[in-house]
Design a protein around this nucleic acid. Sequence first.
DNA 1: TATTGTTATACTCTATAACTATA
DNA 2: TATAGTTATAGAGTATAACAATA
Lengths: 136, 136
Amino acid sequence: MDDPLAHLPGYALRRAANAMMAAFAARLAAIGMRVSDASVLMLVAERKNVTASQIGRVLDIQRTNMVPILNRMEAAGLIDRLPLDGKSLAIVLTTAGIDRLTQVRAIAENFEAELLDRIPAEHRAHFVPALHALWR
Amino acid sequence: MDDPLAHLPGYALRRAANAMMAAFAARLAAIGMRVSDASVLMLVAERKNVTASQIGRVLDIQRTNMVPILNRMEAAGLIDRLPLDGKSLAIVLTTAGIDRLTQVRAIAENFEAELLDRIPAEHRAHFVPALHALWR
DNA sequence: TATTGTTATACTCTATAACTATA
DNA sequence: TATAGTTATAGAGTATAACAATA
């Protein structure tokens, strides 16, 4: 049965995002990672001495929900929590974290390239600018 | 802090979809509706004697997860479940369901128009085609 | 006084397994 | 034999409230 809601931009946005997320999650699951783990890993790699609260503000994850993510990554030996002062902790990658980052980047770059490739050429350059207009 | 992942199409897709969904859910909450309720309501209006399984296949909701949605809508007096044969049930709108549909459509049409309006004119016509390429 | 990290908790959405009855 | 509807349950993401300690 065809979908009578498919023409609605918001509905199509949700369906496309859900399909994309499921596919990306499946690829990350192959190396035991979740999407949130991967985004934290990539962000920490780009920001020296970033705190959990700062990560949460950038990725739109409440700091209370950062705790289980960082606990899981610390338990996996991917990150350390180092005191910056008496209150804040710097999240830094361990050697294992840097190795894992290499894997995550390979998966992500591959995935993003394939995603863009699926968009017909005449629409491709308009995609990210349109999304940014809705979000940033 | 600026977001070093913002340039990634998949990441931007997720962030835009999340922002859009939160805004749409907030508007529907004003009339006591959830996003899934609203999409079911609009689909049922377009398809005569549709079953729960068919709704699930179109909207990508497993039939097991259709049960609480339809229970909630039935308890709210928005739908009836009428036997089609000994096995299947037709989901049909009640009078209250038709009234609620009018409200939902007003909210949805307003929301979708505002969403499109936020996209710069030169990107607008490319948006839904690009999303369809990723999903359908 | 605002912020950081944390615990506890609840709600929504989604996923799997299993069962009954009917096409 | 495949499908419809359902129950029970578990996982994952997300939300609020509250607290101690520090800037």
